[in-house]
Design a protein around this nucleic acid. Sequence first.
DNA 1: TAATTTTGGTTTATAAAATAAACTACTTTA
DNA 2: TAAAGTAGTTTATTTTATAAACCAAAATTA
Lengths: 97, 97
Amino acid sequence: MFKELDPLLHAQLRLAVMSLLMSLESAEFTFLKEKTSSTAGNLSVQLDKLAEAEYIVLEKTFRGKKPLTTCRITPKGIAAFEQYVNDLKQYLNHNPS
Amino acid sequence: MFKELDPLLHAQLRLAVMSLLMSLESAEFTFLKEKTSSTAGNLSVQLDKLAEAEYIVLEKTFRGKKPLTTCRITPKGIAAFEQYVNDLKQYLNHNPS
DNA sequence: TAATTTTGGTTTATAAAATAAACTACTTTA
DNA sequence: TAAAGTAGTTTATTTTATAAACCAAAATTA
């Protein structure tokens, strides 16, 4: 009856990040940090998890002398997000059966 | 930008239980266990948490000689569920801004 | 009828997550 | 040049979820 929700996406911060990346070409670490009101530590950990699953790619470079982390969603990430949103509907539209 | 999601509801099993209770007068422990495909242990723990938050009430009686746990959602629980569904929309409708 | 299994759970222990705190390295400002 | 800020990473702590063990009674089977 209830489909398993992708545990990688069923977590507030990762879901927020993915939600943002769904509508953005790419996003910088600091941008995501601000938009999600998260701490750098938590964001760093969660981005790594998303990257490890290949839902996003991280590009780590420098802007001048400062580190610059840029994030992009992958096709796999888009598919997972869409599947998650779909699966979640069962939980929200509480129809008896 | 992203609203805090009620941690009590943002958990797969508890959300499934609440979803079921939203459309049912009441439900028995074994019914919920079957519908959510959960183990008795996990369900027991999660029901207690929902009850402690007063999102549901648990009535523990006997049917014949066997224990019978019946669950009902409360007005507080209904409000919380509706709020959660609403808050979640921001995460799902990925519109930039 | 004694042992075994099943029902309907609860309690305790373990594993996995999320979060927070501490730290690194470098830069900018006072 | 000392202090504070930037852009993160790493480690530790807390919280959750899950699994395993347990309990009491009833039903089943040998």
